[in-house]
């Protein structure tokens, strides 16, 4: 299959400290890739570089053959790369529908932006349904719970119809029920999208992951299926070998 995302030799330095050091990553069309690693491994930094938030010191990121390094954030989004944030960021004063509508409208010309929203587009209605927020459609997003915010963010991502989704710890801080629902949501999305998920939660990983990439201290430590990764002694040592409590949170 065609690679959608090709990361080569990525290096990111913060004040002399290498947060990423020669990272390669290839994600194929339609793949669901899990990205794991202990805190500070560089997972978020990797997503930041792909989406233009952080400039790398060296290396390249190609999306569909187009170089992303050097593009500004909104350009990357316009090419079809969407992301969520570790702490969900939604627009609290706007209603849930307006949040989604805004996300869906990013290709509209200024002329149409200057018009009022009339009703709810099918796309937004579908996203409301998927995110399970139909009942809260007209409430300000500020009233949503932590879990609901994550779903709203994912919904905002879906209405943008990106070709590649990058989800940064979507189930962190969620209750058990919420994780279940998010997992279901993820499975459904992965059927029709290419997705990269950063996740710590081992139980979640075992249930939903296929291919896994392990980052450690800014380098790729191992790549493979869940079983392969779990059996790798090096991975165990840096990651799973720690006290169970730490690995799970």
């Amino acid at each position: 299959m065609n690679p959608v995302l090709e990361v080569r030799g990525l290096r990111v330095v913060f004040d002399g400290f290498a947060a990423l050091d020669g990272v390669d990553l290839t994600v194929a069309e339609g793949e669901l890739r899990f990205l794991i690693g202990p805190n500070g491994a560089g997972k978020t930094t990797l997503i930041d570089v792909i989406t233009g938030l952080t400039r790398p010191a060296a290396g390249s990121v190609r999306f569909d053959g187009v170089e992303l390094v050097g593009l500004r954030e909104h350009r990357v989004v316009r090419l079809g790369v969407g992301r969520t944030f570790q702490t969900a960021a939604v627009f609290e004063e706007l209603s849930v529908v307006d949040n989604l509508d805004l996300a869906a409208g990013f290709r509209l010309p200024l002329r149409s932006l200057l018009r009022r929203r009339r009703g709810i587009s099918d796309e937004v209605a579908a996203a409301l349904e998927t995110a399970g927020l139909t009942a809260l459609a007209d409430r300000p997003a500020g009233v949503l719970s932590h879990g609901q915010r994550q779903w709203l963010e994912i919904g905002m991502l879906l209405v943008q119809r990106p070709r590649l989704l990058l989800l940064d710890e979507p189930v962190a801080g969620m209750s058990r029920d919420e994780r279940e629902r998010t997992g279901g949501l993820l499975e459904r999305i992965a059927r029709t999208h290419t997705v990269v998920v950063v996740e710590h939660d081992m139980e979640f990983l075992r249930r939903y992951a296929r291919e896994v990439t392990v980052l450690h201290q800014g380098r790729v430590l191992r790549e493979g299926s869940v079983a392969e990764v779990q059996d790798d002694p090096r991975v165990r040592e840096v990651y799973l070998g720690r006290s169970k409590g730490e690995a799970v949170t």
């Binding site: 989004v77 969407g82 706007l94 509508d101 290709r107 149409s112 905002m156």
Partner: peptide, 28 residues
Amino acid sequence: KLVVRSRFGALLVAVRDHEDRVRFLGYD
């Protein structure tokens, strides 16, 4: 008033409250 009530008005509020997030919706 029309501008404030339009999609652009919502976008403006979004930029005011969370400029950095708006970039990741594909707007400048």
